[in-house]
Design a protein around this nucleic acid. Structure first.
Lengths: 153, 153
DNA sequence: GCGATTTGGTTGAACGTTCAACCACCCGAC
DNA sequence: GTCGGGTGGTTGAACGTTCAACCAAATCGC
């Protein structure tokens, strides 16, 4: 007889999972709200600006930007439209692929990012790193890297 | 001279933060998509049903339910409306507070949860616990509990 | 008691995300 | 060549969340 067993979570796992859900949701909500309040943008948009600011010539192909920020093409398309309307981003034609678009961070976009960054970084420090010991930071890094690998591999 | 210094993240913290963002986003997206595909509900709604199913008489005051699921009252209100439309939840008047509402899990709601749970639990196991050593699970629990405390305290 | 404040919950609009459909262009097979 | 499939990106509708405004009932101060 073939039995397909779904192994339930044991009490330790259960507790871990619920704590993880609570903590990660609370952390992201807090940072998102702060960023929205202080810089007028959600965290996802902030990340787009960050990635662009780090790219050579502050320019990135739309799909590379989507990969870098871990977002779908559709999501990035909508976000880019909105960021363009705010004057923080400009879309240009790609010289090597006529289908392509290149997202370019504008000066205003860079300025908005420069204004938002210190407060946000301080939030990350306060809400995340200040609560953890150096050993825990290290553990969290290893866990996250393992997990990211596992999920995208 | 008073200088307000924003201490930037050091390279280790930077790496930790980015890995954490990538991993937690990927994990949640995966689980959310699976739940949507297999059970026709987002993870947030699944959690509402779970909390209700664990409550005495499968009933909970709206605000207790909001606290338990870590969601705003507004969010829960909208969610309850939708779950009620699906026949998975019923809202009843509260006998002790005339302003209050009590959310009650219907039999159909319980059945939907029972149908969704095994697949979802298996997803949590596959995408999270299978990737981590027992020691890491323990570390993640401690980190998450510390963090949850820090954020809500 | 009675007015002022707080609490429990809902509502509608604005926003961001998802999903499926779609178009335009690239590339490989033949 | 051109035909077929894959890739890059956009669009609109449906959905879930947020935010501010709001109502009703409870509670507090006096």
């Amino acid at each position: 007889m073939l039995v397909v067993m779904t192994s339930w979570l044991d009490p330790d796992e259960q507790r871990t999972w619920r704590a993880y859900l609570t903590a990660s949701r609370a952390l992201m909500e807090m940072l998102d709200r702060e960023l929205q309040r202080d810089a007028g943008m959600p965290h996802a948009y902030y990340e787009i600006l960050v990635r662009l600011s780090e790219a050579p010539d502050r320019r990135l192909r739309m799909s590379d930007l989507a990969d870098a920020t871990g977002s779908s093409r559709s999501r990035l398309s909508h976000a880019a439209a909105r960021l363009e309307a705010s004057g923080w981003l400009r879309r240009e034609e790609c010289p090597t692929d006529r289908r392509g678009q290149v997202a370019a961070l504008t000066d205003a976009g860079f300025a908005a990012l420069a204004a938002a960054a210190p407060g946000h970084v301080e939030g990350v420090r306060r809400h995340l790193f200040d609560a953890l010991s150096p050993a825990q930071v290290d553990q969290l890094r290893r866990i996250s890297e393992t997990l990211a690998d596992h999920l995208t591999g």
